[in-house]
Design a protein around this nucleic acid. Sequence first.
DNA 1: CGCCCCATGTAAGCAGTTACATGATTAC
DNA 2: GTAATCATGTAACTGCTTACATGGGGCG
Lengths: 180, 180
Amino acid sequence: MSLQYAILAALTSKPKTGYELSSKIEGSIAYFWNASHQQIYKELKSLDSAGWVSARDVSQTEKPDKKVYRMTSLGLKELKAWIAEEAETPPAKDALLIKIFAGHLVPARILIEVLNKSRAQRMARLKRYEEIERTYFSSPSSLPDDLRFQHLTLRRGIIFEKAWLNWCDETREYLKSRIH
Amino acid sequence: MSLQYAILAALTSKPKTGYELSSKIEGSIAYFWNASHQQIYKELKSLDSAGWVSARDVSQTEKPDKKVYRMTSLGLKELKAWIAEEAETPPAKDALLIKIFAGHLVPARILIEVLNKSRAQRMARLKRYEEIERTYFSSPSSLPDDLRFQHLTLRRGIIFEKAWLNWCDETREYLKSRIH
DNA sequence: CGCCCCATGTAAGCAGTTACATGATTAC
DNA sequence: GTAATCATGTAACTGCTTACATGGGGCG
């Protein structure tokens, strides 16, 4: 259900094709959401038949034809109404936490390896986010409205990756103490 | 798939019924995972037919009969192997972030209300986690192994709820500046 | 010659939610 | 009497993943 609203949110700035939604969203909604192209095409169809978006067929000569989707006024209305609803707080659902929870079952050095790999992924994300912030959001107050809100979600990414790194380090300290 | 491992992780300390798994997990795995009782009964059946857990029927006179599940040695072996595998980093998938992303579409005071409600939920969790830490984990070094690992996942919860609160405050400051 | 980019889908299946169902005991 | 706790499920459905499919153009 939320994916439909994520798609609508991605269509607020300008109309997009399913292909763009599934690949070019890098740098905005991809900070906190993902979906396969199959699922996105499906949701676009269902949004279309609900009248929340409308498709326009565009023929291309050197590339395959495509369908450009734009949000309708009904879609905008529904999106606004949904935004104003209370959001419930989802659980983390990160497999790494299950692994740590049951971590006493395996040797500490194995867990450290698993943790280090996760840490490296988190660090890579943080670097990417910080790079994006430096490049596009260096002076937030001069940005147009929609980009200022995008920046807020990027900020969330930066704050959280840092929190992850802190937790990884704290956890790693304990695991190291179990080896020596 | 991960739910099966979450169930196995919950069964490491002692055998449990589906009912206990779906309700009494409060205070451990519930910090970062959830599931309906229907789904848990389904997964227990599938784990049973795979030989990763085994069920024992227990008749009770004053309560309904129950099935107590314990992990088998095969289940333990598989859980250990899974823990040692690299964990990929999932996206946040929190609807609040979609709402903020498209936040320029609604009046700032509406968004502040939505944010405040989320913030209150986060704050309540943090208080709960801190209370649990004070009560059960005040001197971690004297704890048995499995509880020390449980404590690590609780620490993650505490660190993350604090990070959420920081982000909420940062975001609220910006939203307030849009009203005045 | 093979691979990547563009572009959109079908089909099968698994994972998870929501609604419905039963029924005894204990506590207010 | 009515609500909560204990205890386990079926049925229908939605959401999402994985595998498979097509086909032209550009690049090395």
